[in-house]
Simulated assay, not measured.
Amino acid sequence: MRCFKTLLLSCLLLVPLLAGATETPTIYTIKKGDTLWGISQRFISDPWYWPSLWANNPLIRNPHLIYPGQKLAIYDGRIELLPASEEITRTAEPLPTPVDAISFEAHGDLQTFISADRLERSGRIVDTIDNRILMTQGDEVFVQMSDAQARIGARYRIYSLGELVRHPATNRKLGHQLIWLGELELTAAHEQVYSARITQAAREIERGSLLLPPAETNREIDLKRASQVLHGTLVAAAPGKIALGQHDVCHIDLGRNEGLEVGNMLTIVRPRQPTERAKADRNLRLPDSLLGRALVVRVDDASAVALILKASEPVYRGDLVYSEID
């Protein structure tokens, strides 16, 4: 009886394997304008499947730079990149027409760091209608900001300054971490100040708190090939965040002044140190360790925000980034 049960269990375990082995995939030849995002969305109705396809094919350096003529085997629920020599019978099922556009959605607060120059231009809460020290939801306050930033009826996010951020390599002062406190709405304009009402409070709010327009956290971002190779450093992340991974937001020391644009792809690397046995050769330089890829989702003059799309291991402040043009 024990032998019979063992044989029965073995047969049951083999059934799904045999079923998968006989599955005939659809073979799709990549065309100009195709992307892993678009292919995943159209063939298996899951645009976020593409990181798995990307991760399993290290020769695909950028998710929007796969090449015409490459072939994909499309199964029920998964996609595989085929070696050039592999031949599988193609099904007669009609395939969707590829499109040139690709977009991502960036989630989470992008304003966890503020550069020194942007800090000087930000609005602030300067007073309230009485002499209270702390303010909270429903309180009326007065704020100062430039007329170009102010819009009656608009909502602004309230922040306090966190830790000073220095460059990991040069120790130069770059800006501060930001701690989100709540939101307010402008209600009226006066000669020197604007009236506002605090509509949300996550913590106590004080005079001097910063005001920034809400960051667009769920907008679609078109990928854009960088016009030049730029090299920078990951300098900050969300307060209290040490190790970063997929879907985390980070800040880099490249911006509009260097030619960086929203939609550019960044490669994240870390210099590889020689082993103890090789340190006798002082001129030995090893290739960098490839850590992952990130998408630029917001650009300021001297800094930018990037969303980590893929990480093979934890990413830290001080890791290096560069933009890719091919």
Rank of each mutant, 00 (worst) to 15 (best):
W180T: 03
T170S: 15
T89S: 11
D253P: 06
T199F: 04
T217L: 09
K71L: 10
Y156H: 05
L260I: 12
E261Y: 08
A84M: 09
T267D: 08
I88S: 05
D34Y: 07
T187H: 01
L65E: 13
A236P: 10
N283W: 13
H190D: 09
V249F: 03
Y75A: 01
L14K: 02
I242V: 11
I88H: 12
L291H: 07
H231M: 02
E183R: 13
E185I: 13
W180E: 13
A84G: 09
N171V: 07
N57F: 09
T22D: 01
N218R: 11
K32F: 02
E191I: 10
I158P: 13
D147W: 14
G69S: 08
P83W: 10
G108P: 01
W48Q: 14
I44S: 07
G69P: 04
L178M: 10
G153E: 08
L119H: 11
G162F: 06
P63Q: 08
G318W: 04
K31W: 04
A84H: 07
I74C: 06
Q111C: 06
Q192A: 11
I158Q: 04
I39R: 09
P16R: 03
I30P: 01
E86Y: 13
E261G: 00
R172I: 05
R219K: 07
P271F: 13
E204Q: 11
L65W: 13
A311T: 02
I79Q: 08
R124F: 05
P213K: 14
D34P: 02
D326K: 15
E23W: 05
V99S: 01
I66T: 04
Q200S: 04
G77R: 02
R225K: 07
I79G: 06
R2C: 14
N264K: 01
L7A: 14
I114S: 04
G138Q: 02
I242P: 00
V297Q: 01
R166M: 06
I268V: 12
R2G: 15
V269Y: 06
K31V: 07
L13P: 03
D326I: 13
I152G: 06
A169L: 15
E313Q: 08
E216Y: 00
E191C: 08
C250N: 00
Y159R: 06
Y159H: 11
R90V: 14
T26S: 15
I308E: 04
E87N: 03
I129G: 09
